[in-house]
Amino acid sequence: MMPSKSDWILLALRKTPLDRIRLMKTLFLVWYRSGQNIPQYFEFEPYLYGPCSLEVYSVLEDLSKLRLIVQAPHPVQQWANYYLTERGRAIAEDVAKNIEPKMRKLVEQVALEVSQLGFYELLRKVYSEAPEFAVNSLVREVIQR
């Protein structure tokens, strides 16, 4: 069975907590590096900060309401990392067991890579790997300089 959109998010957070922008970039890079052909996956468009899928926001909202993920308190709440709850982790473990090992490894590798990058480096990496998704970015020229 193909993972659902929420499964991909849980799988990424299973490896490491991520804030919203890093999670967005993780999901994008997984799709982009895997050949841009994952059935029933998020659809990305080139937005003002690079690749973006509006669906990610609504799925995050749903997962928060279901108490499968939580955000730790943060002075600017939208910058806070998302963590799996106990229930969220149990589902993430199930997803990890059932997904193709190659894809699981890719998600884990990308999530870890993205979590370790500064903001500037992250954008530079995404924009250089997928320049067609950086065309509308407000900081493209600064980042690519």
Partner: peptide
């Protein structure tokens, strides 16, 4: 809507972080 605002909020965040 909330998702659209979140996307704009992330753009503002990106600008500030960059």
């Amino acid at each position: 809507n909330e998702s659209q605002i979140a996307r704009i909020s992330d753009t503002a965040n990106m600008l500030r972080q960059a």
